[in-house]
Design a protein around this nucleic acid. Structure first.
Lengths: 183, 183
DNA sequence: TCATAATGGTTGCACCAGCAACCGATTTCT
DNA sequence: AGAAATCGGTTGCTGGTGCAACCATTATGA
């Protein structure tokens, strides 16, 4: 058995312990609980970054995700963006409305399917993208200074695998699949 | 959108642009942007876990953090909990109120300092803790199945370092330091 | 062909979190 | 001692977010 250095890891239990685990054997320390740690660090990083978006460019994180997606792909529908940037469709709808209002994105009807709208950055929108992107990347570098390239890659790899794992464990709670029918 | 190798993934871009990237190069792909990836995976994991807390035990994530902290430390003040579990003091206040209302935590005055209150789990509260903790750990194991112990340790190590890095980069936005004076 | 289902997108509603103002208790400073 | 600052904790308010209902449009199928 692979011995975990942590006294409380219970690494020797079966992968999916039945609910009848001994009640008082609950060696749960928050600092060693990965969902918690993940959430705290992600929130901290997000808040720091959101501050840049807000103060420097007056945009929120959902708005930034839309700008980033359209900066990458030129023209997409709201549905595409929701899927790509993993946001609920109502979030996308409101963020797009705000961006359109400010002349940052442009909405164009799709004559082949009048249900959807084609979205793209305006010239001004592209300007914002090109101003924000380097700052975002600089922030990323600042935060991840001290990690080697190999460690960064490891982190990406781990996230990818966790991502895949979550999709198979609980596919329905992916905010990207806006199918409210398949609940 | 299930898998990372999407049609439009731009996987052929350089891993992480060097520090002196020209402003208009902006090689920013959301899938390769760590703050974004971190946030998405943390949210997904959190939501899946929150569902367990909610459906099985009728508690929210802040409430769970409080139960977990008191399960670990017996008696703490709200301030201690906020610091330990990284929550805003108003969040703690409301979550404690709800838990006290339900008889899960008990508030006791501190005769040596009447500003603060000593919090502890009631017998019922401890029962909940002892029921939730194994499920939380089981969930953690289920999610992290497929990672070796070494990889798990690596992940913890990376998070620790990111954490330290963020504290030095933007110490003021740590939700735990409730000092509204030091803005 | 026409009724029904599904899809892209919008919006009302309720909930939750954070900010900031506030309260009583304690500490600090003069 | 007394004023002022600080501290632990509570609460009103506001903004953001997800859910679910809804609208218009397109696809399906009897």
């Amino acid at each position: 058995m692979r011995t975990s250095p942590q006294p409380e890891t219970l690494a020797d239990m079966p992968a999916n312990a039945p609910t009848d685990a001994p009640p008082h054997a609950a060696p749960l320390a928050l600092e060693r609980f990965l969902p918690y740690r993940l959430n705290v660090i992600a929130t901290t990083v997000s808040n720091a970054l959101a501050r840049i978006y807000a103060e420097r460019f007056g945009i929120t994180i959902p708005q930034w995700r839309i700008v980033a997606t359209l900066g990458q792909f030129e023209t997409r529908t709201a549905r595409d963006i929701a899927a790509h940037a993993v946001m609920h469709k109502s979030t996308v709808s409101r963020a797009v409305a705000a961006l359109a209002e400010r002349g940052i994105v442009e909405r164009r009807p799709n004559v082949e399917d009048m249900r959807e709208e084609l979205l793209a950055l305006t010239r001004e929108g592209r300007g914002i993208y090109e101003a924000v992107a380097p700052e975002a990347l600089a922030f990323e570098r600042a935060v991840f200074t001290g990690l080697t390239d190999a460690e960064r890659e490891t982190l990406f790899g781990l996230i990818d695998r966790l991502d895949a794992r979550m999709r198979s464990l609980a596919p329905d709670l992916d905010p990207a699949d806006a199918s409210e029918v398949a609940r």
